[in-house]
Every structure is written in structure tokens, then in C-alpha cells.
Design a protein around this nucleic acid. Structure first.
Lengths: 230, 230
DNA sequence: AATCTAAATTACTCGTCAGTAAATTAATGA
DNA sequence: TCATTAATTTACTGACGAGTAATTTAGATT
């Protein structure tokens, strides 16, 4: 029914009819693979949006399929099963956060400044399509194998935050504190954004991040020293 | 099969056989009502524990019933349906947080000191049996009526935090900040505890709260002023 | 003892939905 | 042009679990 082919809405590589048929078949094969990957990605994104809108258990695979104008068995063609789909959503989101770490880590100012950049990217990721899956999907909904991979990925992010905190204490840009609890607090505050942020909010993700960072850097208690501002 | 009667394990009012049968029938009726209420509460607590252990959707009402040594239809006898059960869990948890507000609010020091007390109680509630339900239960799993009541209760807590923040800014105990975003950040950090806290953790809830509060009060940036410590 | 009500059970129904088998259509390649 | 493989569909099954009807057991009331 819904033969709208919305997945391939913007074909990056239209079939270019009438051309000399592929000087190199490799190029074509690569393009085909790329298209498959695009469809798969579209499916995963659609799933993430549906999960966020209705929750994992209230979203059937029929729903997900319908969202991209396709039928359920095709979902199985592109991704193993429902758990796998959730897992892929999770991974896509996590990848954004890892990217934030990557770019921030080679911006060689103080560790606190690097942390601030990570948090900004983190907030951006959380407010995106995959934020919900990262944050609210339960490991309980995943079988042992996937669940442990999820835990590991989460743990890597956690360790990344702790490492930055320790580095900051080392280089004097961060007050002495318990890195573990501090990382939990910071990550928790940011993760929670996925619970309340809804598309058209008054503040952009960047603005939200800025206010959070202000709190984390300076605290609630008034400061005698008016230094330290950035 | 499971006739273990674990609900009434510690009968507060054993039938005291052989006594003169009830000077006042009112006392008996009240005791009966109390017992019913105790059973109901036990059911709700068992549900909360099961939900936390396995998630809402992975917990059947048969599971909940079995957890207290009883059969499913009895659950319906004590509480309307599954959604209602989740809602009751939610309310029980919220009640703890409201209590924290109540006790803290008439401890007439600075608003920041009052806020700190609220947060300590808040953390305690989150780590309790009902923390998961408060934090991780999705309004998506509730029908419109219950969902809106949940939203209202959450909003009341949120407003309570904002009010304290504004009061603190007013009385000078809290730095000027965006009360809305700050409340979100603080609540988020605390709520997130429900995601990682598992029974036997290294730190007690109070210790966790203390570290979080330290971060929120003083921030990450080193302070020139060594005042403000409580 | 007879009766009434609440507590609790057994034994179902009924819808939903993850997952699959088999068939069909389209694309690719020789 | 024919054959092979991938993409996609139709049409199912099979389980699980929420919720209910009808019944039994126990407690209280008169």
C-alpha cells in the first residue's frame, strides 16, 4: 500500500540510465552497498524516533516498518530482530558521544576546558534522535549478549568522563573531587535531558548545555572570586 | 501452591483467640481495613521491586502475584489494573520526596541549606524500592488520565526545586542562575541514581547525596575563596 | 445455624505482536 | 535471453499475557 519509497527519497546516486554500463563493476557494487546502508540507517533512525515517541514496548515492528513505508519482514531483512534494532539505535547515539570525545581530546587546553567541550557534544547527542534509546532503553530488554555490549559501551563513556576529571584535578583546572560520583552526577544531568527535551523547546541544545556547564563549573554557592570565567 | 502467606508474615494484630469478642466492633473493622491496606501496600512494593528488577513490560501480573504468594486475579482485587499498579508505585515514591520537602522547608536557615536537605531526602527516595518507578516508568505506559496525573506530580516537585532556587537567589545564598535549567540539571543527576544504584553499592545513599551536593554547591572550578563550606 | 460479604482461586478468552515460510518482484550478470 | 541473487511482499503461527467469569473458601453478623 504505502509504496512511497520514502527511504530512498533523495537518491544520491540515481541509476544514470543510458550510460556506458559500468567501466568498473566495483563502483556499482560499492554504490549498491551504500544504498543498502542508507536504507538500513533510515530504518534505524525511524525506529529510534518511534521508540522515543511511544516507548520500545509500545512500538511494534509493523509500526517501524510502516513509518518508512515498508512491511515488517523487510525489517528482519535489514536487521536481525527487535532487540538488535534497539541496539543499533543505541550504538548510533553512542557513536556521536564518542565523536565528541575524539574532537575534544585534541584541543589541548586544560582538562576542564576539554571536559566542557565533551559535555556540549554530549548534550547535542542526547537531544538528537538517538538520545532516547541511549538513555531510556533498558538493558533489561536486551538478551545477555547485547546487554553486556551495551554496558561496556556505557562504561567506556563513563571512564572517559572520569579520566578527564582526574586529568583536571592533576592539572589544577578542576577542584579535588570524587571522580566516580562526579561523573555520575554530570552524566545523569545530561542524560536526563532526554526525559524532558521535546523538539521545539525554548532553548537550543547548545544553550541548555551552556547553562548546565555553568552550574557544573561554578556551583550554586556565590563566589568571592570572580575569576575563572572561561 | 505458594500458600506461604508471605504478605501477612508479621501479623501486627493476631486474631487474639478467646478474648471477649470485640468490645467495640469499630476497632475490629478498623483493624480489618488496616490489614487490607497492608496487603495492598505489600503488593505495590512487590510490584515496584519486580519492575525495577525486570522492567515494567517484562513483568507480568502473574509474576507480581507470585512474588507475594498469591494469584493474579487477586491483584485486580486490590488494584485496578497493571497501569494503576505502576501509578501507585509512582505515587508511593513521590510521597517520600514530598515528605523531604515538607521537613526541609521549616528548617529556617538559608534557602540553599534547605535545598541541600531536600536533595538528601530526594536521593534517599530515589535509591529506595520506588525510585525506579518514579524515574524510569514511562508516562507512555499510562493512559491519558494517569499520565497527566503523573505529569502533574512531577511538575510539583520540579516547581518546588525552582522555588527553592529562586528563594536562594533572593536571600543571597545561591548564585544567580536559570532556575529552570538548574532544577533540571539537579533533578536529572539525582534521578539518574536509579539507573546505576544497585542494592549493595560502596556508598550509602547519604554519602552519594553528600558528594552530589558538594558538586552542586561548589562546582568543578577551583575556588579562591575557601569560605562557604556549609 | 443461616446468611452475607470479602478474599482468593481455577479456568478461561481474546488481542497483540515477534518472528517465519513461501511466494513474488525487481535488479544484475553472463 | 536466461539464470541468479537480492529486495520485498503476503499470509501465516505460536506464545505470551492482560483482563474476566464463575466458583470456592473463609470471616464476620445476626
Amino acid at each position: 500500500m504505502l509504496k512511497t519509497r520514502s527511504v530512498t527519497a533523495k537518491p544520491v546516486t540515481p541509476p544514470r540510465r543510458g550510460r556506458p554500463p559500468s567501466l568498473s563493476p566495483w563502483r556499482d557494487a560499492a554504490a549498491r552497498d551504500a544504498e543498502r546502508e542508507r536504507k538500513r540507517a533510515a530504518l534505524i533512525r525511524a525506529a529510534a524516533q518511534a521508540f522515543r515517541a511511544n516507548g520500545f514496548h509500545n512500538t511494534s515492528l509493523d509500526d517501524v516498518a510502516a513509518a518508512v513505508g515498508v512491511t515488517k519482514p523487510l525489517v528482519y531483512h535489514y536487521v536481525g530482530n527487535k532487540q538488535q534494532l534497539l541496539f543499533e539505535c543505541f550504538c548510533t547515539g553512542v557513536e556521536q558521544i564518542r565523536a565528541a570525545f575524539k574532537t575534544a581530546e585534541h584541543s589541548g587546553t586544560t582538562a576542564r576546558a576539554r571536559l566542557v567541550r565533551v559535555l556540549a557534544g554530549y548534550a547535542e547527542a542526547i537531544t538528537g534522535d538517538f538520545g532516547w534509546c541511549m538513555v531510556r532503553a533498558e538493558d533489561l530488554d536486551l538478551d545477555a549478549a547485547l546487554s553486556s555490549r551495551v554496558k561496556q559501551l556505557k562504561s567506556e563513556i563513563d571512564q572517559g568522563l572520569r579520566r578527564l576529571l582526574r586529568a583536571g584535578i592533576e592539572d589544577g583546572s578542576i577542584r579535588s573531587c570524587d571522580p566516580k560520583m562526579t561523573a555520575f552526577a554530570v552524566a545523569g544531568a545530561l542524560n536526563w535531558i532526554a526525559h524532558w527535551h521535546r523538539g521545539r523547546d525554548a532553548l537550543t541544545p547548545a544553550e541548555i548545555a551552556a547553562r548546565f556547564i555553568d552550574l557544573f563549573e561554578l556551583g550554586l554557592a556565590p563566589r568571592a572570586d570572580r575569576s575563572r570565567r572561561r
